[in-house]
C-alpha cells in the first residue's frame, strides 16, 4: 500500500499554492492528509503533485469577528477541540469535535481539510451545514465567500474550483442568552464514521420558548441535510417530544437515504429521526439550563 509516485511542493504563500494548482490539473492540496493519504495508499487517489499547505503562514487561527467565529482552514482539529472561544461561542462544534476520528488523527487533521473533503458523515461538515457557516476560498488573487449550503453539492463533491484553496470557515455565533446544543451519532464502534448523525442548536426566550433553531442530519444522505422546516416549526414553542418527532419524521419521509454494508436505508431514515429528536431535546434542555 504505497502511493503512486508524485511530486511534492511546499509553497511559501497562498498565491504560490494557487499557481501550482493552476499549473497541474492532477495536483492536490494536502494539509493534514488524514483522509487523502489513505486513499493514496490504496491508489484510489493518484495526485501527480502534492501541494503542502499544512504550515502556510496566516491560515491557522480562531478568532471572533462580527458575530462569527472564523477558523483558518489549516487549523488543526485538536486545536479547535480544546479552544476556549469555540467552547464558549460554538458549543455545537465543541460538542462534535471529540467524535472526529481519533486523538491521533485530530492532531494532524484540519478543519479545512474535513470541509473540502465534504464527507456527509464528517462531523465538521455537518456542523457547518447545520449552522450555515460561510466558507471562503482563494482562487489566484480572487477571494470568494460561499454558504455551506451551496458549497456541499454532492457525495464528497464541493463547489470549490479545481484551482482554488479553501482558506477559512466562519461559523455564526449565536448571541442569544439561552442557547443549547445537542449532537448524536450512531456507529458500530465509538470512533467510526457515523451511520447517521444529528445536530441541533436552539435559542430559547426566558420562558423556554424557541426563538431560533438549526437542525442537521449527517451521513444519511450524500450531503448533510438541514431540517429547516422542523426548525421553523419549533418557533415560539416549548419542547414537545411527540410533536417534534412527527415533524422530523414528516421531514425525513421524502429523503432517499444511502445504504451500504453497515446500515440499510430504512435504518438510516428511522435512526435519523430518533437522533434528531434526541439532539433537539438535548438542545432545549441545555438551553433551559442556561436560563
Amino acid at each position: 500500500m504505497k502511493p503512486a509516485p508524485f511530486e511534492y511542493s511546499r509553497p511559501a504563500s497562498l498565491d504560490e499554492a494557487c499557481a501550482l494548482l493552476k499549473a497541474d490539473d492532477s495536483a492536490r492540496l494536502i494539509a493534514g492528509g488524514q483522509t487523502l493519504v489513505p486513499l493514496m495508499a490504496m491508489r484510489l487517489a493518484r495526485p501527480t503533485r502534492l501541494i503542502d499547505i499544512a504550515r502556510l503562514p496566516g491560515l491557522a487561527y480562531i478568532h471572533e469577528q462580527g458575530g462569527e467565529i472564523a477558523i483558518g482552514a489549516i487549523t488543526k482539529q485538536h486545536v479547535v477541540e480544546s479552544d476556549p472561544l469555540v467552547r464558549a461561542k460554538l458549543p455545537l462544534l465543541a460538542m462534535a469535535m471529540p467524535h472526529v476520528g481519533h486523538t491521533a488523527t485530530r492532531a494532524r487533521g484540519t478543519v479545512g481539510g474535513s470541509l473540502a473533503n465534504a464527507d456527509s458523515a464528517a462531523e465538521i461538515v455537518l456542523v457547518a451545514a447545520t449552522l450555515g457557516a460561510t466558507l471562503r476560498w482563494r482562487d489566484g488573487g480572487e477571494a470568494r465567500d460561499i454558504a455551506a449550503a451551496d458549497f456541499f453539492v454532492g457525495p464528497m463533491v464541493t463547489a470549490l474550483p479545481q484551482t482554488a484553496c479553501l482558506v477559512e470557515a466562519r461559523f455564526p455565533a449565536w448571541s442569544e442568552p439561552h442557547v443549547g446544543v445537542g449532537f448524536h451519532e450512531i456507529n458500530a464502534r465509538a470512533s467510526d464514521f457515523a451511520f447517521v448523525s444529528a445536530a441541533a442548536q436552539v435559542a430559547l426566550d426566558a420562558e423556554g420558548r424557541c426563538t431560533r433553531a438549526a437542525i442537521g442530519i449527517g451521513a444519511a444522505t450524500a450531503i448533510p441535510l438541514r431540517l429547516d422546516g422542523v426548525a421553523q416549526s419549533l418557533h415560539g414553542a416549548r419542547f414537545d417530544e411527540s410533536k417534534v418527532r412527527d415533524a422530523v419524521k414528516a421531514a425525513l419521509a421524502g429523503i432517499e437515504p444511502m445504504a451500504d454494508l453497515h446500515a440499510s436505508a430504512a435504518y438510516r431514515r428511522r435512526v435519523a429521526a430518533t437522533l434528531a429528536v434526541r439532539a433537539i431535546g438535548d438542545a432545549f434542555r441545555a438551553a433551559a439550563r442556561r436560563s
Binding site: 511546499r10 492528509g33 488524514q34 493519504v37 495508499a41 499544512a54 491521533a104 492532531a107 494532524r108
Partner: peptide
Amino acid sequence: AAVRSCLMFAVQ
C-alpha cells in the same frame, strides 16, 4: 502529540 506516521510523508 501522538500522530500516525503512515499518514504523513517524510518530506512533510
